[in-house]
Design a protein around this nucleic acid. Structure first.
Lengths: 224, 224
DNA sequence: CCAAAAGTGTTGTTTATACACCCATGT
DNA sequence: ACATGGGTGTATAAACAACACTTTTGG
């Protein structure tokens, strides 16, 4: 491979990295890939890679995610740009980090070209990570928790149809504390962001639950 | 100038741009420079410039701000990274935008090397701008207004000592509506983020006002 | 008929809003 | 003495938190 792209001044490389959260097995989990190439070969890392010269940033994040993990559509938003000069041992690399959320059912993992494996990890059981990815994850987690309180971001974890108990469980996992069922229901219904499907879900030896759907699944509303 | 920095893959250029707000003449104003070089020569634009190959992003934002406007220390936080492939006509340029706040007294403008002029503009009287800087400003303004409601960010506009009426005036300008004096004082004092200096300010033919200072001027606290 | 989760209202507490008069100074 | 902005409390409304029993199903 010959060095063929030349500039009057030195240019940094630019990458995107994506922190994808889901709720799985009653825990907040996130998606990591195992690196197939140096540096940090064999280590777990966030999915991501170099931005194409004519590629939009979010497009790059989605492409890398698809290539490395097989994941198609999901909620994505820009998180922060990490640019410490020494954060990559190869050369100066500035990384635009994104954070994404999806119900785990939507995310069918298949290890693909760039990564030898992709897997979910509970947030409190992370392996050693490449680069400054721990720092990126920490920021993403703080953002997620903050947004819980003033937006409907948690709805992004839900399947197309869900019960109020399932939604409550998601909030309880994210907030790390039990919530009162009656208050939760009053609150979440007062947001006017979910609606009954009219269907019931029979799900064990007890009363069936009404199911709901998010009114505007693409929008994260700002509330309060 | 010879093209001497070569890479195996094309690299984008990376810049920082800074949106600096202040309160001046009873209005929210922001800092622009007039471009001395193409493209958009002669147009007004946000201060900013190319990131040095070993330079941290925030450091770059501060340096460019100092070079172009003479402004030294101020509150700065990362805003968003703009990377549309066609946002700069010269080459692919990704810009990490920052937003900054300061009392206008701290900002002594002196047009310097990179810019033929620097000036304050009321937010509702902006000239035509270079690049996508209108979009950047719009996002910065939204962020400022949003942060008013859940942080002490507005304190960054204040001089080291200020009266409660001055602080209230800042909130009224930012929110665009008058506030009740008693409720405002109760609220702002209950935050426990400002303290009396013990001094009075005599300021006209009326009762002198107590002055206050911010307890942790470097920190923007999250409230509520 | 028993176990298990679904569903439903009321009360007390805290927080936010609305509102009017006296105070200290300079002229 | 008067004009000007500085300073203060109370009453009402709205939001939030605490709390227990009945319903429907499967086994």
């Amino acid at each position: 491979m010959t060095a063929s792209h030349c500039y009057a001044y030195p240019h940094p490389a630019v990458t995107t990295d994506v922190v994808v959260f889901t709720i799985r097995e009653e825990r907040l989990q996130l998606l990591l890939i195992r690196r197939r190439n140096p540096p940090y070969r064999g280590r777990w890392a966030l999915p991501g890679g170099f931005v194409g010269i004519d590629e939009d940033l979010e497009e790059c994040a989605k492409r890398e995610l698809a290539e490395e993990t097989g994941i198609g559509d999901l909620f994505l938003e820009q998180l922060y740009t990490f640019g410490r000069p020494d954060r990559d041992p190869r050369e100066r690399v500035i990384s635009v980090a994104y954070f994404g959320l999806a119900p785990c059912s939507r995310l069918r993992l298949k290890a693909a070209s760039d990564a030898s494996a992709a897997a979910w990890f509970p947030l409190d059981r992370l392996p050693e990570l490449a680069f400054d990815h721990h720092e990126i994850i920490q920021l993403a987690h703080r953002r997620l928790v903050a947004k819980l309180h003033y937006s409907t971001i948690a709805f992004q974890f839900m399947e197309p149809e869900f019960t109020l108990s399932e939604l409550q469980a998601v909030y309880e996992i994210l907030r790390g504390e039990p919530l009162d069922r009656r208050n939760f229901r009053k609150w979440v219904l007062s947001l006017d962001q979910i609606e009954e499907t009219g269907e019931l879900r029979r799900n064990g030896n007890h009363r069936p639950a009404r199911t709901y759907r998010v009114r505007h699944p693409q929008r994260v509303a700002i509330i309060r």
